[in-house]
C-alpha cells in the first residue's frame, strides 16, 4: 500500500516536470520604420519556458544581446534608450488562455495574456500566437507592437524623425521538452 502510494506520488511529480518546455536560443527581432531611417535589431539568445500543466509562458531577454546593423546604433540603444546597465533584462510572464492540442499537427492560433516588463515598467499584453507541435517540440511565433512612450524611453527632438513611436516586435521560439 505504502509503496503504491509513493509510486503514484513520484509519477505525479514526474508528469509535471515532463510538461515543461524550454529554449535558450529563441529569436526576438524588432524594427522601427521611420521616414528617415530604418532601425532593425535581432536577438538570437532569448530564453523562454512553458509549463503546459499550468499553461504558463515566460520569456527572458538580455537587452545587451540585440545586434544591430551599425555598432553605433547598438551603443546608443543600450546607453541612451534602454539603459541596459541599469535594466539588463526585459521579461514576459503570461498564460495560455486555451491549452494547445498536443496531438494536432496544424498551426493553432492561441491567445496568450500576460505582462511585459521593460525598464522595470510593467504593461499588460494580450496576443494571439501561432503554435505548432512537432514531436517533442513546441514552435511558437507571432508579433506585436510596443509603444515607446509606454516605457518612458526618452527620444530627443533632434532624432525624433529617425525613430518611429511604435516598434514592431517579431518572435520565434522552438521549445524542447525538458
Amino acid at each position: 500500500m505504502n509503496k503504491i502510494f509513493l509510486f503514484i506520488l513520484i509519477t505525479f511529480s514526474l508528469s509535471i516536470s515532463a510538461q515543461k518546455y524550454v529554449t535558450k536560443s529563441g529569436m526576438v527581432k524588432f524594427s522601427s520604420d521611420a521616414p528617415l531611417e530604418k532601425i532593425e535589431a535581432t536577438n538570437n539568445n532569448v530564453m523562454s519556458a512553458i509549463d503546459l500543466s499550468k499553461q504558463n509562458v515566460v520569456v527572458k531577454i538580455l537587452v545587451k544581446s540585440f545586434r544591430f546593423e551599425k555598432a553605433l546604433m547598438e551603443e546608443h540603444f543600450n546607453e541612451n534608450y534602454m539603459e541596459s546597465d541599469e535594466f539588463p533584462n526585459s521579461t514576459f510572464k503570461g498564460k495560455f488562455i486555451d491549452a494547445p492540442d498536443m496531438n494536432s499537427n496544424d498551426i493553432q492560433k492561441i491567445k496568450i495574456e500576460g505582462k511585459i516588463v521593460m525598464r522595470s515598467i510593467s504593461k499588460p499584453l494580450v496576443i494571439i500566437v501561432d503554435v505548432k507541435i512537432e514531436g517533442d517540440a513546441i514552435k511558437i511565433d507571432g508579433k506585436f507592437d510596443v509603444k515607446i512612450d509606454d516605457f518612458s524611453i526618452g527620444i530627443p527632438s533632434a532624432v525624433s524623425g529617425k525613430i518611429s513611436e511604435n516598434l514592431e516586435v517579431f518572435f520565434k521560439f522552438n521549445l524542447k521538452a525538458l
Partner: peptide, 12 residues
C-alpha cells in the same frame, strides 16, 4: 509558478 518557471534562467 511563473516566477518559478522564470527561475530556471537565474543561473544563466
Amino acid at each position: 509558478e511563473e516566477d518559478d518557471l522564470m527561475g530556471m534562467f537565474d543561473n544563466e
